[in-house]
Design a protein around this nucleic acid. Sequence first.
DNA 1: TACGGTTTGTCAAAGGTTTGCACAGACCGG
DNA 2: CCGGTCTGTGCAAACCTTTGACAAACCGTA
Lengths: 341, 341
Amino acid sequence: MTERTRPATLKDVAKGAGVSISTVSRVFSNPGRISPETSERVREVARKLRFTPNVMARSLITGRSPNIGLVVPDITNPYMTTLLKAAQKVSRLHATGVFVADTDDSADIEREVCEQFAQQSRGVILCAPRMTASHIRELSGIVPLVLVNRVVEGIPSVFTDSRAALRELVEELVELGHRRLAYLPGPAGSWSNTQRGRTVADRARALDVEMIRLDPTDGTHADGVAAAEQVLELGVTAVMAFDDVLAAGLVEGLRRSGKSVPDDVSVTGHDDILSELVHPGLTTVTGQSARVGQLAISRLLDGSGPASGPGPESGTHQAESVGVKATVVRRNSTAAPPRSG
Amino acid sequence: MTERTRPATLKDVAKGAGVSISTVSRVFSNPGRISPETSERVREVARKLRFTPNVMARSLITGRSPNIGLVVPDITNPYMTTLLKAAQKVSRLHATGVFVADTDDSADIEREVCEQFAQQSRGVILCAPRMTASHIRELSGIVPLVLVNRVVEGIPSVFTDSRAALRELVEELVELGHRRLAYLPGPAGSWSNTQRGRTVADRARALDVEMIRLDPTDGTHADGVAAAEQVLELGVTAVMAFDDVLAAGLVEGLRRSGKSVPDDVSVTGHDDILSELVHPGLTTVTGQSARVGQLAISRLLDGSGPASGPGPESGTHQAESVGVKATVVRRNSTAAPPRSG
DNA sequence: TACGGTTTGTCAAAGGTTTGCACAGACCGG
DNA sequence: CCGGTCTGTGCAAACCTTTGACAAACCGTA
């Protein structure tokens, strides 16, 4: 039905313009060495023939591909979605295609798709990997890597640095009068989860208040709903959730038990991603996922020179990890604890 | 730092196994013509050398790529996210990479990325509500296309068919006593928006009740919030929104005006995507986006034989459009209209 | 022994591009 | 008019794979 005709090649353009193949090639890939008249004539013919350089052939000979890979544990999570959107926007400007893989939180699939992408990508952005550090290092021998929300010695990374914001949040809750707080954990293998849990625990200890770590979850909305039971059982007055999804679930769970937020329990989230959708508005921490995505892409695209520099500092500079500072967003899910409590 | 060594090629394996290059090639691409012993020996060496066939070279000579493209207007929308996740899962089983592009609701970008993908993909799944039909047809001359949530004569497509569900919803609202309803439109250029608006309008006319079309929106949560004003102004008692995002916004907007859902106004959504997050739970229509994604991928992957059959029916069969039946999900955002209304 | 048939493996071309090298001509100072 | 530099272009190899044509070896059989 729809006839797909063979696309024009360098040869076709060369013949049409009366020059050699290499001249045409140079017009597109290495301009400046060709006279303006020739160049214009070639471009004219190319336009007429709707010629575009064959990516496969080009990649084959240059040994590098114009694509990058983005590997995420769960593309359904709005944090990742925003990151992807931003990353994708940047790469489009570089005419760089973006492979996306959702690993369903599986370390095995992470490795599998990374290996698959390695061949066709000039680099891979690995988000919140579940993989072991040594596997990550091994992988970085096959394809350039930029880690997101995880720090591994020797590998470049970008992460949301919410430590200061989380400490601030703990302080504010204590100031409001809370003395018995809890942290609602996210996915067990997650680096961010460990970081956040540790940060709030440390701050709580410093302020001499309780910070109970609730049972581990997988980070789903349903897990948040279910966590309400334990929260009420333990009688904590404020809960800091791993992220907004869990926080929203918890709010819903509390509501189902007849409790209200923030009157009975204060709840905070993380990522500021669906705060506008839930009621009351969640007090949370900005995720900065868009910025993180942009930075990750930039580092991949800039730092992809040919193994480069003899200078010893260029290497270390490349491998450093960059934190994007997060801030507190105050809404209506926190308040003073109830008198009776 | 991390030394990246040149990957092994057919040549290396051939030398290691003491056979010719083509023998090795056939072991991987066209088995059966090689004796079991030779095959095993070759595979052994290949394993030892960590050989994997070079995708670029293979694609160059075969003329087809192992990837597909997925083009969406806004990856941030949970409907698309779910679709992507499902599509991606299917393609992973086929060792097929997935390019993703977010077009920011721009018809120009839609075209641009499709052309970019064309070269490196064996097909593109196009969720492109904005492009004109003729552009789509033109595009399908460059790369095999499967349309999502849009029907264009002669091009295969998969869409959520919610017509029956929407009619049902109208009937239920009327049965509850509503006589003055409204449709809250989504993005203006969207095919789905046109379909849904028409469907509910037709059904309302048939039932002899009012169905007012509210001012057009871009489909954002903020648009939904803003629409509350017009809803109250017009005094409608039930609003059917284009999708859940708008519906959630509307619920929030009504709440800010001191109105409650469903007591003062009934609201319905579409896609069943964030219904669990908002309160009260939205009565909505299932989006079936996962199923749609699976089907779209399958059609692309199956129907990518070489232009194929002389039979006249094979063509038409390929180009047919497949609807996935949606159903009503009843929650708590609809009720009888207030007495005074 | 010679011969058709089958199986197994090799040869070489092809696919579209990039790029080091060679070459031709223009230009310039001496 | 000659030797040199500079500029613009062409030649051909290389990247790695697939695949049709073909050779070699083997079988059983006449």
